[in-house]
């Protein structure tokens, strides 16, 4: 393979958000604050709502900025440093803005058998992303390799934002990209 597998999103070619002032997610009276409070009530300790709270922030803002970590920390009675420690452990939390369509191609062994490396090449070629983890110049796409998506019988699975696309071959890539809105 010509490219290093499993490169994280680098956040090169930022297109949205992070130079603007941070807008809090859990403002008084907001639906997200209510949702967070409902989630907190499911656990005996507030800290257990940390992963759910980070998910809410990422859904709202597209990524988890240092300011967002501070906001979440304040909501749950934690320090921003602690929250950062958790954010950096998990691969799905974006620590930089990513393209509108975040494309993760599974390349672990079973998918490699099915030619997943060629699927990666096709996505890089057709999105204009120069390399794995970099966002395309138009801000639309970021492509990364991901470790086992747990859909090995449907090789090669590709996760695009929330959704799985299964049995992807290099030939199907242009059609998949044109179906994205």
């Amino acid at each position: 393979m010509s490219h290093g597998p499993s490169a994280p999103a680098q956040g090169h070619g930022h297109t949205h958000g992070h130079h603007e002032a941070y807008e809090p997610v859990f403002t008084p009276g907001s639906a997200r604050l209510k949702e967070l409070q409902d989630v907190i009530a499911r656990y005996p300790e507030k800290m257990a709502a940390l992963l759910p709270a980070l998910w809410m922030v990422q859904q709202e803002r597209g990524w988890i900025s240092p300011e967002a970590m501070t906001e979440v920390a304040a909501q749950l009675g934690l320090t921003a440093a602690y929250v950062k420690g958790v954010v950096t452990f998990y691969t799905m939390y974006h620590q930089h803005p990513v393209g509108k369509h975040f494309i993760q191609v599974c390349t672990t062994s079973p998918c490699l058998c099915a030619g997943a490396d060629k699927v990666v090449d096709a996505f890089l070629e057709h999105t204009g992303c120069k390399e794995l983890g970099l966002t395309s110049p138009d801000g639309k796409y970021t492509v990364i390799e991901v470790e086992c998506l747990g859909a090995c019988g449907f090789a090669t699975p590709v996760q695009i934002n929330e959704d799985y696309v299964e049995n992807v071959t290099p030939e199907k890539v242009p059609e998949i990209l044109s179906s994205l809105k």
């Binding site: 257990a48 759910p52 749950l76 452990f89 799905m92 939390y93």
Partner: peptide, 25 residues
């Protein structure tokens, strides 16, 4: 339901519990 955030190791039972508690897995 508690949603993970991308970490194979959280399938190890004690890592899973740490993750659920809001810690690194």
């Amino acid at each position: 339901v508690h949603k993970g955030a991308g970490a194979y190791i959280c399938g190890e039972e004690t890592a899973l519990m740490n993750s659920l508690e809001g810690k690194r897995g």
